[in-house]
Design a protein around this nucleic acid. Structure first.
Length: 604
RNA sequence: GCCCCCGUAGCACAAUGGACAGUGCAACUGCCUUCUAAGCAGGAGGUUGUGGGUUCGAAUCCCGCCGGGGGCGCCA
């Protein structure tokens, strides 16, 4: 909404400098920092530097000349509609807005657009976000929560920014890990089935850890132990062979236990208010992946070394004529003809491009897969898919424990469900103290909203390529820069509006032609930044941008709330104007929280 | 050997070419008969690992070094 204004001023600057035959460097506009007013600013450093390089500008130091230009421009600006005053400071031209006018435009637009405030224009491109890819036959741990929350937040952001969006999940439902669970189940727990969705899912993880321990080579094994282990290993291999051959009984066991895992996954996604549009199962991509290999060989991209007893490979660096090793060599088929992770991802990418007509493909997968995706994207490019340029690996760091990495094999994991339950318990403890009048049902609901909000924010407010050492107290903190802090701002806004309604005040169109406090100005400033924050978060595929914004907005609201009376305002006109502002703030906080997959409670 | 990521206040993090490098936690000082104190306000805490370079301007870009993590043809 500052665009027309910005354009008007830009044109004035251009024509002024044109008249003096000074070439103007592109102008970058930023909000003015450190002021109780608001507006936009731009600097003349670049123009002055270009001038100096061209031997113009009278040989003055660049900063001095830039300041001179800013002053001259200011002198020529005259009066501009919607601008209160202009200053030239340290080579910056600061353009301050007419407060009452600007405030009204911002608030009116928010209230008119409501949940759509900040929505970007349709981009005409389709993006698929692939996230939440746990392996089946394990349980969902806190590390999975990171990809899930990152992915969902990203999907919400790009969707809101105007992209046609598809949410995809790609569970790993085959492989040795899965077979290991089936083997141990058959051998030690056949016919058993715990009740409860999460109990069953977690039980599979326990079986997996037990089985791994039995199959692991130990130090100082007795000959009997070695024989036992090798016998187990032979049974597992045999089971894998049967599964591969499509043995009906094995397939059925696989299908049933797989469903236990997926049920648990679906329940967790439901808790997190996530609706996946497309499920790709690794087992379903396995077949198609073998087909594409022939195509890649025929195109001369892949090299078939099978006649020599080798594998099918792509020597990527060699094909590209690279001097240094960067993309290395990728293997597409083992010498026994079975496909690999990369092969499946290539086949899946083809499906995404051709069947789902995806223009941009984002993969939310941990950082250890960096090389894998560099290889995959490069091969897709060599293969001739223009979409390869818009494939993006949103790589994220691991969640580790204070005692080291999590390990499903050792059963050393922090389960998401346990953390979520603990979160709810902690909120309930606080809740009974803070809101003793709340009904039991509502208290439970609010506790879930707040607890999961705390957890989600703790994941999203850290740059994705940093590791997180999981600390329950930190993840579930309610103080300071946290989800509940932002939710509390929403609740406080709601609280004022409720009281206003009870008092019979109506939200009516009003103006801001009184002297605004700096807190009101700061709050309006933050509100007005929301659309730009959406755009930036979407362009950079970074939910962190939205997380940071949401905090700044909530922070501005809390300060406002504390310092500025709304219902108590002496003047009814001021009260009404502030009520409007509170309503707008509540709306934008809710919009921002929604993009972070965090609920905006009415009470807490 | 090669490739990628990271190093910012005691701790955890933010800021990817612009104005005094911000925020939280911890510690300290105030503020609840007044719209919810899950809050607000206030000081204190920094040669941005290090040495060069590019630039009018560098936490940010380039090169070297130190320290940490990850990866590198038949795991996923």
């Amino acid at each position: 909404m500052t665009n027309q204004l910005q354009q008007t001023i830009e044109e004035k600057i251009k024509s002024f400098l044109d008249a003096q035959e000074i070439p103007l460097a592109p102008l970058k506009w930023t909000p003015i920092p450190f002021s109780g007013e608001w507006g936009i600013s731009t600097s003349f450093f670049q123009t002055a530097a270009d001038e100096a390089r061209a031997g113009q500008g009278g040989g003055k130091p660049v900063p001095q000349r830039a300041q001179e230009l800013a002053e001259q421009v200011k002198g020529q600006m005259g009066s501009v509609e919607g601008v209160s005053h202009i200053e030239a400071m340290k080579a910056y031209l600061n353009v301050f807005f007419e407060t009452s006018d600007y405030a009204r435009r911002v608030v009116d637009e928010v209230l008119a657009s409501g949940p759509d405030f900040g929505r970007g224009a349709a981009k005409g491109e389709r993006v698929m976000v692939e996230y939440a890819q746990p392996n089946t036959h394990h349980s969902f741990h806190i590390g999975h929560a990171r990809t899930t929350l990152l992915g969902e937040s990203l999907a919400r952001i790009v969707e809101f920014a105007g992209f046609d969006t598809i949410r995809a999940s790609y569970p790993g439902d085959l492989g040795l890990g899965v077979i290991t669970v089936l083997w141990a189940y058959e051998k030690f727990y056949k016919g058993q089935e715990p009740q409860g969705v999460h109990e069953r899912g977690q039980w599979l993880l326990k079986i997996y850890a037990e089985a791994t321990a039995l199959l692991e080579k130990k130090e100082n094994e007795t000959p009997e132990q070695t024989a036992q282990r090798e016998a187990y290993e032979a049974e597992r291999r045999e089971l894998y062979r049967k599964w591969d051959a499509g043995d009906a009984a094995v397939r059925e066991l696989w299908r049933v236990t797989r469903e236990w895992s997926l049920e648990e996954l679906r329940d967790i996604l439901n808790m997190l208010d996530i609706k996946i549009d497309v499920w790709f199962y690794e087992s379903e991509v396995d077949g198609p992946s073998k087909v594409i290999v022939d195509e890649l060989i025929a195109k001369g991209i892949a090299t078939d070394e099978r006649p020599q007893g080798g594998a099918v490979i792509i020597k990527i660096d060699e094909k590209l004529g690279m001097a240094k090793e960067k993309y290395r060599t990728a293997v597409l088929l083992r010498s026994d003809g079975t496909s690999l992770y990369l092969t499946k991802d290539l086949a899946l990418a083809k499906v995404k491009f051709e069947q789902y007509h995806v223009d941009r493909s984002v993969y939310v997968v941990d950082f250890r897969q960096n090389l894998h995706f560099q290889q995959a994207f490069k091969i897709l490019e060599m293969w001739g898919f223009p979409q390869a340029a818009k494939c993006y690996h949103l790589s994220y760091g691991y969640i580790t424990l204070p005692e080291g990495a999590m390990s499903a094999r050792r059963g050393r994991v922090v389960l998401f469900k346990d953390v979520a339950d603990e979160a709810v318990r902690r909120v309930l403890a606080v809740e009974s103290e803070k809101a003793p009048d709340m009904s039991e049902a509502e208290r439970q609901k609010v506790a879930e909203q707040i607890g999961l909000g705390a957890l989600a924010y703790s994941m999203l407010s850290v740059d994705n390529n940093k590791d997180i050492v999981f600390d329950m107290d930190a993840a579930l903190s309610f103080d300071g820069r946290t989800g509940p802090y932002i939710q509390n701002a929403h609740v406080r806004a709601n609280s004022i509006l409720k009281k206003a309604q009870a008092a019979g005040y109506e939200l009516r169109v009003t103006g801001y032609d009184y002297e605004l406090t700096k807190h009101e100005i700061e709050l309006i400033e933050q509100i007005s930044k929301f659309p730009a924050a959406v755009e930036q978060a979407a362009n950079e595929y970074r939910p962190l941008v939205m997380a940071a914004y949401a905090y700044d907005l909530a922070n501005a609201f809390h300060s406002f709330y504390h310092a500025v009376p709304v219902l108590q305002a002496e003047d009814a006109k001021v009260r009404d104007a502030r009520l409007q502002l509170v309503a707008a703030a509540k709306q934008v906080i809710a919009n921002a929280l929604r993009l972070l997959d965090i609920q905006a409670p009415e009470v807490m």
